[in-house]
Design a protein around this nucleic acid. Structure first.
Lengths: 231, 231
DNA sequence: TGTACATCAGTGAACGCGCGTTCACTGATGTAC
DNA sequence: TGTACATCAGTGAACGCGCGTTCACTGATGTAC
């Protein structure tokens, strides 16, 4: 039973893994747009057509890398939040935001693949949506937790101007029972965090922001004030 | 004097213009990464090598397009602000932000060229920095104007924790005499606005934000509260 | 005003390159009886 | 336990394509005297 040689199915999974690892390495060196099946095959000592046993097309490989990257980022952020779970919401928000930023700086080309310009002509299949949502869910659950443990004295009626701004399904599990306004602010925070990180990584701070570290912390703090405020 | 035929120097400028116009059209159709000198030449009924009379290299053409795009965007935003110059700062911030967003939606591929993932291996020359800064300067001047016409009762001492966060030169002309904190918040607003627009254009609202219009207005309003607040 | 020369836009062929994808094939691994 | 057949990973050649850039050239436009 304890077979030294891997079975065919096992070997297949291993090979898929090796292809993705090699692709990630090449992507880290030259960026996602330059990723080519032929080069991946060359690096692995295979002939390019061999890869078609595993991915029907270049886009299919890209999609797999995208899903993996979203999940890797999601894992990082969830771990960061859990490490600070005993502290208050502001601490958790700082931890989660910094985890996103650290991941982005460690994997700039994967970050660009996820959050940069979409590859023209590439359409992400719908099953990328769920792994992509994990980061926002972490932020939402921190905010929701804070609302539950520290509810406002009187809850404002749902501002009717907020009806229909957000999709109904997305943050529902993580933020059930929390007013619509808090959800909107959570997504604002979410876009603010990625806005800063993209500006930093894509070179837009040149001439304006000197200490990206400190700027980022200030921004997260300000937006946390907003999202955690009670009235 | 009124020569019907253009002189050689005039013809040259016209031709440069035609090359850029054609490139912009192709870029709008297929995205910046797919822009090729050969296709531009083909579209103009020229042989590809002819373009080398005007641009020494593909990157040089791209750079010209980037500079033009920053200036086009800058023009739009400045005009929008001037149209609302008689109204209060909040109105002007809404006008400027919406102008950015409208420009982005009208020119999605140019927006991606400016604010999406940088082309790997492409290094923007330093003279792109000034046109790129125009948008932030408009935001800064609106905020500064508001501080000047409506100064706080007592000005807080400059928070020492803000020293060195920003570059010293950048917002100085537009925001001279305004506390460092306001500058930091202005750049926060700047990154927030582009964060939202990038998320919208790059497809990250799928499953979370339903009405990008209304979400954007709420976000701008919230961040305007922050940046215009007095204590 | 005319002539000799310099400048320069555009041509056409070529260099050297890499890409994604298909297809008929070999030979090893797995399965059914 | 052994045999016949099916599955499937990887090969190697090929198709058809487009790209950026160089270079020697032609012929029209501009300039100096």
């Amino acid at each position: 039973m304890t077979d030294a040689r891997p079975t065919r199915a096992e070997a297949r999974l291993l090979q898929i893994d090796r292809i993705k690892t090699t692709s990630r390495r090449l992507m880290a060196e030259k960026g996602a747009p330059a990723l080519s099946l032929r080069e991946v095959a060359r690096e692995m000592g295979l002939v390019s057509s061999a890869l078609y046993r595993y991915f029907a097309t270049r886009d299919e490989l890209l999609t797999a890398l995208i899903v993996d990257a979203y999940n890797d980022l999601g894992d990082c952020v969830e771990r960061a939040q859990r490490r600070e779970a005993s502290k208050d919401a502001r601490h958790q928000l700082h931890a989660a935001s910094s985890a996103i930023r650290r991941w982005a700086k460690r994997n700039p080309n994967e970050y660009a693949l996820l959050y940069g310009s979409p590859v023209p002509g590439y359409e992400a299949p719908s099953y990328t949506v769920e792994p992509a949502a994990r980061v926002a869910l972490v932020l939402g659950s921190i905010v929701a937790q804070s609302w539950r443990t520290n509810p406002p004295v009187r809850v404002k009626a749902v501002d009717p101007s907020l009806k229909g701004v957000l999709e109904t399904q997305n943050l529902d599990e993580a933020m059930s029972g929390i007013p619509e306004g808090a959800r909107v602010l959570t997504l604002m925070m979410w876009s603010q965090i990625f806005g800063c990180i993209s500006f930093e990584l894509f070179g837009h701070y040149k001439g304006s922001v000197r200490s990206a570290n400190r700027f980022f912390n200030i921004v997260v703090d300000e937006v946390a004030n907003l999202v955690l405020a009670r009235e």
